[in-house]
Amino acid sequence: MTESVAVIDYGMGNLHSVASALGKVCNHKIHVTSDPAVVAAADRVIFPGVGAIGDCMGEIRRLGFDALLREQVASGKPVLGICVGMQALLTHSQESGGTECIDLFPGEVKFFGHDHKSPEGEPLKVPHMGWNQVEQVDHPLWADIPQNSRFYFVHSFYVEDTGSEVTGRCEYGVRFAAALGRNNLFAVQFHPEKSHTAGLQLLHNFVRWNGQR
C-alpha cells in the first residue's frame, strides 16, 4: 500500500511548496488537509506554520489541532514541525504579547530583539533571513547532509539552545536551536522546502524515517 503524508493545514500560509517538495522526494500520497481523520490515518505528519504565533495558536486551538498533534506524536508515527510549526511545539513564546504554546518541548521562544548585535557588536538585521549553517547533532534525519550545511531561515523569534533535545544548532548573535528531536518527533526552524539540495535531502530522510534515533 502507498504510504501517506499529511501536511496539516490550519489556514496559516501557503503549503504548496511543502507539498511540491515532498512530491519531489517520494511517491507517497500527500494530503494537505485540515481533516483530523485524514491526519490520523496518515503514516507521517508535517506540521508547518508561518506568520505570527498568536494567530497560529489561535487557529490551532480553535480547530483542536493541539490535541490532535499530541495524539499523533503519542501514536509513534514520524512527525515533523517546520518554522512556526516548530515554535508552536514549545511551552511558551514571547511573540504576540506572550503566547501559550503546545508544550511538547519544554522551553521559551524568544525575540532576537530590536537592537540585535553580533558578539563583536555589529548590528544584525531582524528577521534572520537567508542561508545559515546548521551544526548537526547525530540523528537519522541528517543522513547524507554534510555537516554545517546551509539552510534557508526566516524568523524573528528563536528557540533557546538548551536541553538534550537540541538536534541542530545555528548562530545569529546568539546560538539557538535550529532543530529539536525526541523519539518520533523532529522539528526545524528553517524551511527545508526552500533549502534546495540539503532541504530536499532532509525531507527525503523524513519520509523514509522509522521514527527512531
Binding site: 504548496h16 511548496s17 512530491g23 519531489k24 524551511h191 526552500k194 533549502s195 530536499l200
Partner: peptide
Amino acid sequence: ERIASEVFIP
C-alpha cells in the same frame, strides 16, 4: 505555480 513546483529556493 509552475516555478514553485520545481524550484526549491525562495
